[in-house]
Design a protein around this nucleic acid. Structure first.
Lengths: 359, 359
DNA sequence: ATGAAAGCGCTAACAT
DNA sequence: ATGTTAGCGCTTTCAT
């Protein structure tokens, strides 16, 4: 057979000599069907290669057993691993995953959400971009679709749960470590830009700030709390690219030679920063300490081994999935916020600064 | 509104004062609708927050604008990147991706394929596991569902296209490089086991061999072609795990001290092998050359920089997607095979062996 | 325990 | 240019 013509339940019913409804009941394993007919129907269905049409079923039941996952970048290890653990978790509960990568474009995110909604996913996990507009998400949540925000809260959207690492605390771990070692001039490579207002962002889940802004806030706050003055020129902006991070790091080191430590606040930026330090002529950690972000498989392969702040990636994926399933099962349930703790893995790229710099 | 109660086309039609079909035509942008009613319907639809039900549409049109992607491991960088480029490619043509990770379990693969088929995906890209049974895939293809096999051919399944790197050629690149440098005792870390029959597998797309077996075949053939004897004890088996690869590499080096070069044939095995070489006490590349597989972001971060065989990951994802879309558009079209060339990136982990070993 | 009929939301003939 | 009708394949009343 080359035909895409599929076997329907009517074909099964006819071949088994029963009505369509009986066939349906038998296939569903309903109790009110005689064992005889149930076997007969099952056998005939197998012979014919019957495969139930989930679309038709969904039309009636109103659920598709499918959840959507919308992330900015699937080739980013963080999102890839979150997707992996999310997919595993929901599958155990009978759900599949429709995935969409928005590649940093807000318009793609909007369309992805619309498309998945049109496909009637039962719920949606979205790591929203920093676009201006969150209408598509708000509408979705208000229509009653289960929604979990991942990694970044969307300002106008209540009624959605939020799962993320505690990014303010994550930065504090890194900065406290450096300050304890004696560092006073600590640079940061960030996707966010310096903004004194970040000093006041204390609630790590409140604002709709991007993770990078949260991490910058944590840096500023930890410095300030320790009595170390923050300097705008020590906050180096970099776009979401390893190559750009490389340049940013080189520039930071060149223009601010007093810096004895660098904290890099993102997965993809860490690789560029590490390479830049290697090429800078400075010895790490003797001349310069470096802290990366996220767990890289290369953290223990490079020399010096990389000290890094690691997010509980898998736990985040599981938490997002579980909360979504919960919201699907109990629509009335109020949204929850789950901030998971990051931890600092101290390896060899951080040490006491060579010369104690004093202001 | 907290209700999941959705606005249907009937609601829109009624509010616009037209019939259901006119509303449908207007929404679809059909030409035979007057500009006036089209505007009216569009306005009313927007006001009501109407969102077309793609399920209902699919019931009629017979296509879901969705393709399935089934891979063994989403946290493997190779599959993550293939998924990324596949998703991007199909999205440009109006398709979304249902993804499933089989985590190395054949039973999960079978279920995933069944589930996606029940959801009536228009086509499927599958990187099949090495389970014994390919019935689920054969049935799918014979039912006329577009099917592209990724990375590994499934023996019993013709009527499916095949997209992969040329793994035999990939190994030849690595081994020729080493032999040209003067190596005669070259070990290999492989997920496959030594098998002399692999010497005869010349057609890189014919057999249903796993990529690892193909790469081992390429190793054996390149050695033999160069007149270098192959030795079963130089073929070191490792399971799919970086830690196990570490142990395998250590063992290989201990038991076969004559080895001057190691070729590692897999993504996740490469990290373990590199760490093992670091810890072995041997200097790389002076005492031991190492070739890894796939492009790692750490290849240029470690010292020595890693020489590696790189697959055209993105091109593979695009090719798989394009072929699938082609097969969907032209069901009668015969399956095609696309073997993309890998290339060797020579960095610093390979060099002339210290002592020329002679047999 | 089984069958007949209704209908999920939409598109696609077939009218007019 | 618009309305009417008939389904897509299934589940779910409602009968019997």
């Amino acid at each position: 057979m080359t035909s895409r013509q599929t076997v329907t339940i009517v074909d099964v019913a006819r071949a088994a000599g029963v009505s369509k409804s009986t066939a349906g009941r038998a296939l569903a394993g309903a109790a009110e069907v005689s064992a005889r007919t149930r076997d007969k129907v099952a056998r005939v269905a197998a012979e014919l290669g019957y495969r139930p049409n989930q679309l038709a079923r969904s039309m009636i039941t109103g659920n598709t057993q499918t959840v959507g996952v919308v992330v900015p970048d699937l080739s980013n290890r963080f999102f890839a691993e979150v997707l992996q653990s999310t997919a595993r978790t929901v599958r155990k509960h009978g759900y599949e995953v429709l995935v969409s990568s928005t590649e940093g474009e807000p318009e793609l995110e909007r369309r992805a959400v619309e498309t998945l909604a049109a496909k009637r996913v039962d719920g949606l996990i979205v790591a929203p971009l920093d676009g201006t507009d969150d209408d598509h998400l708000r509408r979705l949540a208000e229509d009653g679709t289960a929604l979990v925000l991942l990694d970044r809260r969307a300002p106008g959207v209540d009624r959605a749960s939020f799962v993320s690492a505690n990014n303010i605390e994550a930065s504090r771990l890194a900065i406290d470590h450096l300050i304890r070692l004696g560092h006073r001039h600590i640079g940061i490579i960030s996707e966010a830009r310096y903004d004194p207002a970040l000093l006041d962002v204390t609630e790590p889940s409140a604002a709709g700030l991007r993770p990078s802004a949260m991490r910058l806030a944590g840096y500023l706050q930890a410095m300030t709390a320790a009595g170390v003055p923050t300097r705008p020129d020590h906050v180096m902006h970099s776009a979401y690219s390893s190559a750009i991070s490389y340049d940013a790091t080189r520039t930071l080191l060149r223009t601010n030679p007093e810096i004895t430590a660098i904290y890099c606040t993102d997965n993809v930026l860490s690789a560029g920063a590490f390479a830049a330090v290697q090429d800078s002529g400075l010895r790490c950690p003797q001349d310069l300490s470096l802290i990366g972000f996220d767990d890289h498989e290369w953290a223990t392969l490079v020399r010096p081994r990389l000290t890094a702040v690691e997010q509980p990636t898998e736990a985040i994926g599981v938490a997002a999935a579980e909360d979504l399933l919960d919201a699907i099962a109990t629509p009335a349930r109020p949204p929850v916020t789950r901030l998971l703790a990051a931890h600092l893995v101290v390896r060899d790229s951080t040490a006491v600064p060579r010369r104690q710099d004093v202001d």
